[in-house]
Amino acid sequence: MPTLETHHGAVLTYDDRGTSEPALLLVHGHPFNRSMWHPQTEHFAERGFRVVVPDLRGYGESTGPAVTSLKDFAHDLIALADHLGLATFVLGGLSMGGQIAMQTIADHPQRVQALLLADTFPTAETPEGRRNRRAAAGRVEKEGMRDYATELLPKMVSPRTRAKNAEVTEHVFTMMRTSAPAGAAAALRARALRPDYRVTLEQVEVPTLVTVGSEDEFTPVADAQLMHRLVAGSALAVLEGAGHLPNLESAAEFNDVFGRFLNPLRPRPDPQAEER
């Protein structure tokens, strides 16, 4: 797999499939890795899009100094886009990845051509939430990821998915339990300190798609509706029966919704070029 060593010592592993515009840069959530986006990588690369999917620093096969804020992740994404020659790109993120996407568009609005916010929320952490994230960080450092992953799984995927899709359920559990505790802990502490992104969303001027699973316990439909109201002209899609990971749980429906959003962004053929 290709890798990039950034100027601050992070080594990012990523997939880069397809060649045509617009390029999609997809950001996974916690505690996952780039394989979370496998159904989208395959689907959209086969349809001509360039799809770039990194492991975030501290996750999957990526390494480097521990992050201290979501800005560190955003800097990594821009470094990867620069390395690949992506002047602009469609930026998509799920859960923590959505918050990293919001941080990225806040810091580098000129780089983002369009935005996908999946199963995420924009508000700053509450005092109780900060305590819980810091406690979870200490726990995974001390105990590892297995028990943490076991407890999270019923909230990550819907009852329908657990009952009818053992392959997706096992994939989600495997990603969680094999995540590096140090990377997961650093990200938990960084998320505890995240800012409020509601003003950022009010300033977004690019096409935006908000998606959410109807059964999502972590970021329920009301969170998606809030983001939809904040981003003028945005589209909202609720994927019925899916939990926190509709891109895996309802991959065909998710790809259809995302594909219809992306199609108007494709470059139009030049009629004069065809005549020549």
Rank of each mutant, 00 (worst) to 15 (best):
G48M: 15
T178P: 05
L70F: 11
P181W: 00
A45C: 13
K142N: 12
T208M: 08
D147Q: 07
R130N: 11
P269F: 11
R191V: 15
T104K: 05
E170R: 14
L248S: 02
N165S: 07
T126W: 08
F173D: 08
E42M: 09
P2K: 03
G48R: 12
W37N: 02
E170I: 05
M175T: 04
E274L: 11
P31F: 02
T68H: 12
M36D: 13
A106H: 04
V172C: 07
A232F: 02
L117S: 05
G9H: 05
S95Y: 00
N247R: 01
V199F: 03
R229F: 09
V172L: 06
V238F: 09
R189Q: 06
V51A: 09
H228D: 06
E217G: 08
L265M: 12
W37S: 00
R47V: 10
F261W: 04
A135T: 14
D72H: 10
P127C: 07
Q225P: 06
P122S: 07
T150W: 04
Y14G: 09
S95N: 06
E215H: 05
D107N: 14
V53K: 04
E170Y: 06
P22Y: 06
E253K: 03
Q113W: 03
I100C: 01
Q40R: 03
P264F: 11
A192N: 03
R139M: 14
N33G: 09
V51R: 08
F254I: 13
H8C: 13
V51F: 07
S62R: 00
P109I: 12
M176I: 07
L201Y: 05
P271R: 10
L80Y: 06
V210C: 03
H83N: 14
A124C: 13
N33V: 09
R260W: 01
V204A: 04
A163T: 01
P109W: 06
R146Q: 14
T41R: 08
F173H: 11
P31S: 10
L188Q: 15
A242Q: 06
I78P: 00
T3M: 08
R266M: 06
A237E: 13
F44S: 06
